[in-house]
Every structure is written in C-alpha cells, then in structure tokens.
C-alpha cells in the first residue's frame, strides 16, 4: 500500500512537470471546440434557438464577442462566457468558425413570407446584409440559413431596445411593420 502511494505521487510529479513545461497554449480549435456543445459541431447548430456560427464572418464574431464582454450587447450566457477569453482568443475563434462550411438548416418556413421578404430585402437591408444575407459588410453578421427562432429573438430584442441597433439599420427597421420584418427574417433563414 505505502509503495503504491509513493509510486502514485512520483508518477504525478514527473508527468505533471513535463506536461506543464511542454504543452503549447490552446489553439483556435481547442478554444472553439468547447463552444460546440451549445453551438453544434464546428458551429453548425441543430437547435433552432441557438445560432449557427459555421461560416459566420470573423469580423462579426469578434464584434459580437467584444460586445458580449463589455455588456454592450444583452445576453443570457454569452456575457459571462466572453469574460473568459482575450481579444486574441476572439480573433482565433472568429477565424476558426468563419472557415467552417455554412451549415444549411432544415426548417419549416412560410413560402409567402419568404417571397415578401425577398422583395423587400435589397432596398432595405441589402446595403449591409449583402448577397442575400450570405455576407455582411464589415462586422455585419451573415444571416443566410440562420435559424428563424434565433433571428426572431434578436429582432424582438432590437425592437424592445434591449439590443442596440446600428443607427443606419434603425433608420430602415423603425418604419417597417412587424409583418414585413418577420417576412425578411423568413427570407434570410431560407437562403441556402
């Protein structure tokens, strides 16, 4: 028994010291894999209220993480989680998820709303949500194929003032009816 314990302590010490001295800091993949339990493998979400990160632009992810961390963007969990990472980590994770294949979601959407949204999007949102929402200008997030329930939660937060809209987006969004806005979200969710 005593022998065993000595062996145990010895093993602990030896292994630990060598591992500590040699292991490299967490890579982008190590950091990002930990997010996948909530956001899905490689950022492709299977849960309709949880946003997909796969294919999202690096700039949009970094911008979102910084706003979560500072509290500028409201959140349930992301505000606290963002405090666990540095700006360099945000860039690493943003790059990692931006390189993952866009994850086409399979959701039931309203065809009439999609058509309505398609007719509205270019003139109202297309300046920043470019290429049918597949891309975003600067740090504007991509919305193509994003989960509708997630987009609806975000729009509700914008309209209630909980989440602050960019000024130029607000100019477009404010005059629109709830129905038209919902049609736009159906459209973006439908883009593959």
């Amino acid at each position: 028994m005593t022998m065993k314990w000595r062996g145990w302590a010895l093993a602990t010490g030896v292994l630990a010291i060598s591992a500590m001295a040699q292991a490299a800091p967490p890579t982008a993949a190590m950091l990002s894999n930990a997010c996948a339990g909530c956001h899905g493998t490689n950022g492709g979400s299977a849960g309709p209220s949880m946003p997909s990160l796969a294919g999202q632009s690096k700039e949009a992810i970094v911008d979102a993480m910084k706003k979560f961390k500072s509290g500028a963007r409201p959140a349930t969990v992301m505000g606290r989680l963002a405090k666990g990472f540095s700006d360099a980590d945000f860039v690493a994770m943003g790059e990692y998820f931006s390189k993952q294949k866009l994850h086409p979601t399979n959701q039931s959407l309203d065809a009439a709303k999609i058509a309505k949204g398609a007719s509205l999007q270019e003139a109202n949102c297309g300046r920043c949500h470019i290429e049918d929402g597949k891309e975003g200008k600067d740090d504007t997030p991509a919305m193509a194929s994003q989960w509708l329930p997630y987009l609806q939660i975000q729009m509700a937060d914008y309209l209630s003032g909980k989440r602050k809209m960019p000024e130029k987006m607000e100019e477009k969004v404010k005059p629109m009816s709830k129905q038209d806005l919902d049609a736009l979200l159906h459209f973006y969710a439908s883009v593959k």
């Binding site: 996948a36 339990g37 909530c38 956001h39 899905g40 493998t41 979400s45 299977a46 849960g47 309709p48 209220s49 949880m50 349930t76 969990v77 606290r80 989680l81 405090k83 666990g84 329930p149 939660i153």
Partner: peptide, 27 residues
C-alpha cells in the same frame, strides 16, 4: 470572472436550454 449564474429565473433560458440539449445530443 467567467463563472456565474443567471440573474433570475427566465423563460428565454428555457428556450435556449432546449436547443442546448438538441445540440449536445446531436454532437
């Protein structure tokens, strides 16, 4: 600074929780 709990009981957290389950079991 990263560890903490929800500020209050919430319905939106229940909605996110359902998606959490879906995502982690799908993983």
């Amino acid at each position: 600074g990263s560890v903490g709990v929800s500020p209050d009981l919430s319905e939106i957290e229940a909605i996110y929780a359902e998606s959490w389950l879906k995502n982690i079991l799908t993983e």
